[in-house]
Design a binder for these strands. Sequence first.
DNA 1: TTTGTATTTCGCAAAAATACGAAATACCGT
DNA 2: ACGGTATTTCGTATTTTTGCGAAATACAAA
Lengths: 101, 101
Amino acid sequence: MPKDSFYTELHEKMARYSKALSHPARIYIMDFLIRNTSKCCYSGDMAEELPIARSTLSQHLKELKNAGLIQGEINPPYIRYCINRDSWEEAKRMFSEFLNQ
Amino acid sequence: MPKDSFYTELHEKMARYSKALSHPARIYIMDFLIRNTSKCCYSGDMAEELPIARSTLSQHLKELKNAGLIQGEINPPYIRYCINRDSWEEAKRMFSEFLNQ
DNA sequence: TTTGTATTTCGCAAAAATACGAAATACCGT
DNA sequence: ACGGTATTTCGTATTTTTGCGAAATACAAA
């Protein structure tokens, strides 16, 4: 079913990525994951640094996951999060084209 | 008064710019303004293309203005909008650093 | 001074985002 | 089977965003 919208797929996608990054906690999380690609990044690692409840952090992680920017590798009871490289590359490309056109 | 927040100025700013771009209509507007730097860009020009009420468009313009991304040159009854080059350059720099770190 | 034009502001309603604590989940070690 | 641990989901409250039409604004032209 083709997207029934006035806006282009590109515009919708840009807006979706932007929205995912529109909260300082989520910027923090992405920053954390980017700077620690080698480390295991558990929810708890970030929860210790961030001044928000664990359930709230969990929601932010879910939103980033829904936007496709991150993924969680389940290893109960831990969940190791990391950047979704494909989406991240796409986001990079789109932002860079948009910003530098 | 120093910002009393856990997050850095940079993170706050990134989130603010992202939020400004978190709606397809606002992506559309920015795109329009970027592609028409030579033209006069009146609210009405965009209102004719966008499938939203003029008052709604006006609100989106206000948000982009509040985020510092655009500015309006008043020439009643017209208002000519354009990219705020300084902020735009800053946003470019910040996004590119963030995305490519 | 009245009329017209482009745009914004106001007032409101509906939807979405944000946040928390409590409860649920899912596995491990004992 | 029973706790212990890390994390998520649920229920709920508050705030913010989005959207519209009607009214207001501000100037130009007649």
